[in-house]
Each structure stands twice: as structure tokens, then as C-alpha cells.
Simulated scan of single mutants.
Amino acid sequence: MLNKSIRRVSMLILFTAAAMAACLFSISTGAVMVPLRDIVNSILQYDLSGMHRDIIWNIRLPRTLVAMVVGANLAVSGALLQGVMRNPLADPHIIGVSSGAGLFGIFLLVVVPQYDYLLTPAAFVGATLAAFIIYLLAWKDGVSPLRIVLAGVAVSAFLGAGISAMLTFYSDRVHGALIFMVGGLAAKSWPDLAIILPYSIIGLGLAMMFSKQMNIMMLGDVNARNLGTRVELSRLLITATATLLAASAVSIAGLLGFVGLVIPHIAKLLVGSDYRMLIPSSALLGAAVLTFCDTLARIMFSPIELPVGIIMGAIGAPFFLYLLRRKRA
């Protein structure tokens, strides 16, 4: 038991180191290489002058922090949804929660762009409605994991049709919505971090509060009720927390897929299924992976920058097929 605890704590330390390494890699790498010494001096003392300070503080540091928060939010949202829906294939993008946020987000961006400051609350409302509809469609004397996925795919397709219709009617404004649809972090700055950070703090805090409930609910509804858990209320609150995290991430980074699918599975393989360790592990690993992938998206075809959603799609789609095949087997 002691060795298992030591291993889990060691993995948590490793994930923290990976997140810090990804952060430094992102800040130092680009068209202009910034030495590690300058990064440390600038962040700790803010005494660096000239071009490197501007690059660090005005361009790379805020984008890197946004990437880390978005990655943590999506990863924890996926971990919560996979647990509460008892489905290893659940994640905000696949089951349609992100599509609900995307529909409302696209509506603001292309139909009423003067209200773009309401993007985050609108995305939360859209994600909440999508989650409610999916849950309602999947309910039949309980929630079936297969019905969850099927209902999510159907709702996602329906909402995707709505997005396509809006882009068709407002074709002159499509360019501003393209990055949002693919998922990207280009030009993210301090105001974007200020928008997402309160939602992230609240959502991650609630996720940790619900970690004990998640462990109980993993035993099954009957056992959870026998232990005094109000299953449906807990499921509703946990789903709302996952929706809040996903919606805040979508409002900043767009329809970024597969982070919530891939990261929780990797974390679970390394630290186990105890949500008291799985949630912080998923957050740290999600931050590290998305930050690293965003850096690759910036430098792979420099000076052309790819949206990070393309990189995550290239990684996540094969992983999804692997999970689907393993589940069927």
C-alpha cells in the first residue's frame, strides 16, 4: 500500500515537472530563440530589457499559460465525464458538449459579433443545454454507456449542421470563425487568461471536491445508493462541473477535440482510477500535452502556424479508434 502511494506521488511530481518543462519549451522556442536564463530572469525579476522581454511577456508567456489552463480544463472535464457516464469513450468533443458550446460561440462570432464579450457564458449555456439533451436522450431506466455515445454523436451532428448553416448564411464572416471551429491558440494574450482563469479555478476546485463522490459512483449506482449517495443529484452536479470546464475552454480555444479523451486514459494508466489522484494528474498532464502540441503547431511549418486542433486530431483520432476496438474486443 505504501509503495503504491509513493508511486502515485512520484507520478504527480513527474507530471508537474512535465508541465513546467512544456511551459519553458513553449516560451523559449519560436522564430526567436530565448535562452532559459533570460526566461527565468524576466519572470522572477522582470529586469530584462529589449526584445526578449517583449517576446516573453507580451506574446509567449500569456499564450503558454492559456494553453496550460485550457489543457487542464479539457482533461479534467473528460475525466469527470468518463467516470460519471461510466464510458471510456466519453469526452466533451465526442459526446457533443463542445458542439453545444461551439454553436452558441459561432452564433456570437458571426451573427452578433458586437456581443463577443459574452462568449464564455454563452458557451456555458450551449454546453449545458447539449449535455441535458444528451442525458435525456440516453435515459431509459438508467443511463447506458452505448446510448450516451450514440445520443452524443447524433446531437453533435445536429448542432454541427446548425453551425454549418450559420456559416453559409454569413459567409462573409467565416474567416473569423475558422480557427474557432478547428481549435487554436494563436494570438491569445493576458485578457484571454483573465477570462478563463476564474472558471478554471472554480471548476477544478469543484472537481476536487467531487473526487470522493466520483470514487463512490464508480462502484455502480446500487452500491453508491447503499452508501448514502444521492446518485442522480451527484451525477447532475458533476456533469455541470465538467460542462463548465469544457465551455470555458471552448470559449477561448474553440472546438479543440480529443484532449479530454486521451489525457485521462494516460493518467489512469499511470496513477490508477482513484479520482483524488486522477483529477490533479489529468490537469497537469493535460496542461503539459496541450502546451507541447501548441509549440509544435507553431514551429513545425514555420513561418506558417497550424492550429493546435490539427495536431490533437492527428493524435486523438487513432487513440479513439484504439479504445473503440479494445472496448469491442
Rank of each mutant, 00 (worst) to 15 (best):
D172T: 13
A283K: 10
I56F: 11
A138P: 05
I216H: 02
V69T: 13
F292T: 15
R276Q: 05
L146D: 01
V84N: 14
D274N: 15
S49C: 05
I216A: 10
M85L: 08
F180G: 09
I43E: 14
V66G: 07
I299W: 09
P121S: 14
G309N: 09
A177P: 06
I310K: 15
H265P: 02
N87D: 12
S302Q: 11
A18V: 03
A21R: 06
Y199R: 11
V155L: 07
L14D: 00
E305C: 01
T243F: 04
R86G: 13
V222Q: 06
L185W: 03
A154F: 11
K140Y: 12
L204E: 11
L261W: 00
F15Y: 09
L245F: 08
L206D: 05
R63S: 07
G254P: 01
L278H: 14
L74N: 07
F124N: 13
V222F: 01
M312G: 06
L278I: 07
P198Q: 09
A314C: 12
M217E: 03
T16H: 14
D274E: 13
F301K: 01
K212P: 00
L227M: 11
L306V: 08
F169G: 03
A207Y: 01
A165D: 14
V271L: 15
G142R: 14
R60Y: 09
I315H: 12
G126I: 13
L74E: 05
A240I: 01
G228K: 00
G254Y: 00
F319C: 02
A130W: 13
K188N: 07
E305Y: 11
L65W: 03
I148W: 12
I311S: 02
V34N: 15
A31S: 15
G50A: 03
L89F: 00
S77N: 04
K188M: 12
R326Q: 15
L245E: 11
A122L: 03
M166D: 09
M1N: 06
V308N: 10
T241K: 03
V110S: 06
M11P: 02
A242E: 07
L323Q: 01
R63T: 09
L118S: 05
A75N: 11
R235D: 02
Q82M: 02
S281N: 13
P62N: 06
V9Q: 14
G313R: 12
F107Y: 15
I43C: 02
D47V: 00
P303Q: 13
L261K: 08
T168V: 13
D38F: 00
L80F: 00
H93S: 14
G162P: 04
L119C: 14
L261S: 01
G286I: 01
L89I: 08
G309D: 14
A123M: 08
V84F: 00
S99D: 12
V40W: 15
L278G: 15
G160T: 04
R235N: 03
N73Q: 12
T29H: 00
N73C: 10
L159C: 06
M209L: 09
L270R: 10
G286T: 15
M214D: 03
L108T: 01
S156A: 09
V174C: 07
L109H: 04
L285M: 08
V40N: 11
I311N: 10
